[in-house]
Design a binder for these strands. Structure first.
Length: 516
RNA sequence: GGCCCUAUCGUCUAGUGGUUAGGACGCGAGGUUCUCAUCCUCGAAACCGGGGUUCGAUUCCCCGUAGGGCCGCCA
């Protein structure tokens, strides 16, 4: 066994412009392991593909990571240096930088050349066209697709001449022959590949940028990463990486290949079949802790029956041994349930902060402002109106994007519904008018400041009993009068949210409707 | 096609050489209730197949089968 090093994990996304939920889960596991073991969680940006670089992607990624709370101890970080410009700047913290690969080009070049000197890598001048043709032929002949080492047999003079002529070329790894490359994967156990079947991977591209394979090995080593936690799709690249560690004489990290997140059809989770970016989920009204909790349980299980975990509890419970091997379908139904649980458990006022943008988006702030005569939609009084709505619908929401759907009757002035909806089951029109009139009398005498739901409910219920009426006969019409809907939140919370004046108006209107 | 990985309810999963194979989501039924939602109770629902090993395999081994991943100067 090697000496125990302090645990260092990393999340190394390529900046595509958004954070994939699968990426978030990988990041989460790396974060959890580091935190659990008192180690360091590193963020590294893998932007070695010039053609795929996206403007502002790094900033965007850092922002998203920041809202999820999975923040790196080392790596790029958002710095708000220029307050006037309100622009995002990226700074770096840590002793192992730079953490953005495009700023480390000379490092990769240095190590690539070292391999050439050692004879573990060689220049290749083959054109993309030739390579493509070669692959097609191999495919046709049912051969494993693999570089034919055409350029390995070039004479030293020719290589020197072509390089001096600045001919476009790459550097390829010279894969060792007749070896079985084996490693102990933390989730999969012993995994092995035959080196003869593995391609001579390009390490340095003709534009001077490294490929993922070179960069990841060099950086993980230089950054002293102890655990490489990544998706299963990297499993078959690992022998190439191991060959590199071996060529450099470096000790490889522990590899942890976590199972894939799957579409309902069991293919790799993709944009094609719904939302995959963390931003999408947040915009759809999922709460960060719910999303984090949900993805944590996709591929990891604490061996207990607990399902709801705060991030702190996840850190406490996390263990590499409890990772699963098989892919997990991303089940929206269960996510919705879990999100609903988080919404229910949230303090209403605190939840309001998260829900506020969704009310705003639907124009409900403006409507409320207009109705209460507030000068603008950010007034305290508007917030109070929204808070009423939220507290009524809180147990009915699965996603914050649904706000206002169950409580739309609070935001309109005139209700539109058929008069017969007011009459409960076997009750009659005459009786219903009687009940509504009685309710109107009762409620109009009651001071508004005693319209606290519980107290009001108790009083009305006992008043109904005193009159020898039935709850359904009286409460159904009251509820429909207030909400205009056969299915809706209850009458007492509606009375409370609407307030005395609007409630009485609606009751009068119901009576008129029945009389007509 | 080659290589590799995986396999318990529809889904996420627990579990063991002998269990009534457990939980959760979803689904169904009932209860609470003025409706809906919440909440509570109950229910249906799984060890991929075939060979071994064994007194006994869902569990261990092998072979199938199925699903998935990778096979780029993408990551």
């Amino acid at each position: 066994m090697t000496t125990q090093r302090p645990i260092r994990t990393r999340f190394a996304p390529s900046p595509t412009g958004f954070l994939h939920v699968g990426g978030l889960r990988t990041a989460l596991y790396a974060y959890l392991l580091a935190k659990k073991e008192g180690g360091t969680f590193v963020l590294r940006i893998e932007d070695t593909d010039q053609s795929r670089s996206v403007d502002g992607a790094v900033e965007n990624l850092l922002e998203t990571l920041a809202v999820t709370g999975i923040e790196p101890d080392e790596g790029p970080r958002l710095a708000d240096v220029d307050h006037d410009m309100d622009e995002l700047h990226v700074e770096e913290v840590g002793e192992h930088g730079p953490y953005i690969q495009s700023n480390r080009l000379d490092v990769y070049k240095h190590y690539a050349l070292q391999l050439v000197e050692q004879g573990d890598a060689y220049p290749c001048f083959c054109t993309p066209e030739r390579l493509e043709q070669m692959r097609t032929e191999q495919q046709k002949a049912k051969q494993p697709p693999k570089y034919d080492r055409h350029c390995l047999s070039l004479s030293e003079e020719e290589v020197v001449r072509r390089i001096e002529a600045e001919e476009s070329h790459v550097l390829r790894l010279r894969m060792p022959a007749d070896q079985t490359i084996t490693w102990e994967d933390a989730v999969r156990g012993t995994v092995s590949f035959e080196s003869n079947l593995i391609d001579d991977q390009v390490l340095l591209k003709s534009d001077g940028f490294p490929t993922y394979h070179l960069a990841v090995v060099v950086d993980d080593h230089l950054m002293e990463i102890t655990h490489v936690i990544r998706g299963e799709e990297w499993l078959s690249s690992t022998p190439k990486h191991l060959a590199l560690y071996n060529a450099f004489g470096w000790e490889p990290p522990i590899h942890v290949h976590v199972p894939l997140l799957l579409n309902p059809d069991k293919s790799k989770l993709s944009k094609r079949q719904g939302d995959v970016s963390v931003e999408d989920f947040l915009d759809d009204g999922y709460l960060v802790p719910a999303l984090v909790n949900f993805i944590a349980l996709l591929g990891w299980n604490p061996k207990s029956e607990q399902e709801l975990f705060s991030i702190t509890e996840l850190v406490e419970a996390f263990s590499l041994e409890d990772l699963n091997k098989s892919g997990a379908i991303f089940d929206r139904d269960k996510l919705n349930w879990m999100n609903g649980e988080y919404i229910k458990q949230h303090d209403t006022m605190d939840l309001l902060m998260h829900a506020h943008p969704f009310y705003d988006e639907k124009g409900l702030l403006e409507e409320a402002a207009k109705r209460v005569g507030a000068s603008n939609k950010m007034d305290q009084i508007v917030m109070e109106e929204i808070a009423k709505s939220l507290s009524i619908e809180q147990t009915r929401l699965e996603k914050l994007s649904q706000v206002g759907e169950e409580t739309d009757y609070l935001f309109v002035n005139a209700l539109n519904y058929p008069a017969e909806d007011l009459i409960w089951k076997k009750s009659t029109q005459e009786d219903t008018v009687l009940y509504l009139n009685a309710l109107q009398d009762l409620l109009s005498e009651r001071p508004e400041d005693t319209w606290v739901t519980d107290a009001l409910e108790k009083d009305v219920i006992s008043w109904i009993a005193e009159n020898n009426w039935k709850n359904g006969d009286v409460l159904w019409p009251l509820r429909v009068a207030l909400t205009g809907k056969p299915k809706s939140p209850g009458p007492f919370e509606s009375l409370w949210a609407l307030g005395k004046e609007r409630s009485l108006e609606r009751i009068s209107r119901a009576i008129e409707l029945l009389a007509a």
